[in-house]
């Protein structure tokens, strides 16, 4: 059995969530899970093409952070971007239609699985290369401070969140952006989703210092180690980071310890990872855990769970029907969107 790094226990004030907030988070996590399960099925059936990276197991991170943010805050993702987009408010229909390459997709069928964008929802993208989204998220954060201080816009108190994995933390853009964010006190949250594996490269084989949160202190920003399988812990840490950023006090790094249940992408045979390791993490499933919490706190009933699951199933099915029935882009528009005037 692989020796697992002990998951931190959350010891600050007991996590509190209202019933309304709890249900939003629960539904969001379920949507992420069901949506990805459907993607896997569609890929197997040859309906969805390209490189497809699924988020199963990591839902507590997207839901925990993004559902603690406001709708006018910015979200920036990687190639594993379906669920960040959903949490940011991009309708399932638009994400699914994008996977089908349809004109109704959030990127008009030009982007695909790894390039989800939505200006309307401040979803800055789906970036396919490691680390390239971090500077973009930093640019959004710079813009917020600029609008506030240079342009005197009192409403400029948004926050930008950059999501990326453990593999990215060995890339220069990670260090460069931590430095600039701390230097200029920019309102950004660096959310590391440490799922232990960069495709087939184990984190401890790639990083001399495996505890990523400790790297923040070198640049003078707070870094927290968070149980990424516990949505309440993620949410509590995110709230602290968001409040700090909104108050103009600067960036925070959150290292969320999590796991992807599936291979790196649907094309990955996933033969390297120990079945015992996979089981260790599945036993800590964030959705089951949060569901148990909601039941225990009497914030939800078994009947409500059933009805929510059925509702989310319908949302995913509806997104599929929408995507299948949507038109392909017009061949005459092949060159559309190259330039701003198009």
């Amino acid at each position: 059995m692989v020796q697992e790094r002990p998951l931190p226990t959350f010891t600050a004030t007991p996590p509190q969530i209202t019933q309304e907030e709890g249900l939003i988070v629960y539904e969001d996590m379920l949507l992420g899970r069901y949506f990805e399960d459907k993607c896997a099925e569609l890929y197997q059936r040859g309906k969805v093409k390209g490189f497809v990276h699924l988020y199963n197991g990591q839902e507590a991170v997207a839901s925990g952070v993004i559902k603690a943010m406001r709708s006018d805050d910015y979200v920036c993702s990687t190639y594993r971007d379906h669920v960040h987009s959903l949490s940011a408010g991009v309708p399932a229909r638009e994400v699914m239609a994008e996977l089908f390459g349809k004109e109704t997709g959030c990127s008009k069928g030009r982007g695909g699985s790894m390039h989800m964008f939505s200006k309307e929802h401040n979803m800055l993208g789906g970036f396919a290369f490691i680390g390239e989204g971090i500077p973009v998220a930093l640019g959004a954060a710079f813009q917020i401070r600029y609008r506030k201080e240079v342009m005197g816009d009192a409403s400029a108190d948004q926050v930008s969140a950059a999501f990326f994995g453990d593999g990215t933390t060995n890339n220069g853009q990670f260090f460069e952006c931590l430095n600039m964010a701390a230097l200029w006190k920019l309102p950004i949250i660096f959310v590391v989703e440490n799922n232990k594996w960069a495709i087939g490269m184990a984190h401890e084989r790639a990083s001399s210092q495996t505890e990523i949160y400790k790297k923040a202190s070198v640049f003078g920003l707070p870094g927290y180690e968070v149980d990424g399988m516990d949505v309440l812990a993620v949410r509590a840490a995110a709230k602290t980071a968001i409040e700090r950023a909104r108050a103009g006090e600067g960036p925070t790094l959150l290292e969320c310890l999590t796991y992807r249940y599936r291979g790196h992408s649907v094309a990955d045979p996933d033969e390297l990872r120990d079945p015992e390791e996979k089981q260790f993490w599945r036993d800590r499933d964030p959705i089951k855990r949060f569901e148990a919490y909601l039941l225990e706190q009497s914030l939800i009933s078994e009947a409500e769970i059933k009805s929510i699951k059925s509702k989310i199933t319908d949302v995913v099915e509806d997104s599929l029907t929408f995507a299948e029935e949507s038109p392909n882009p017009n061949p005459a528009d092949l060159y559309k969107y190259i330039f701003a005037e198009d």
């Binding site: 800055l124 500077p135 973009v136 930093l138 640019g139 959004a140 710079f142 220069g172 600039m180």
Partner: peptide
Amino acid sequence: NSFTGMGIGAAMTG
């Protein structure tokens, strides 16, 4: 690479 990307992110957002 990072400050160029930051400029691009700032351009995307106004």
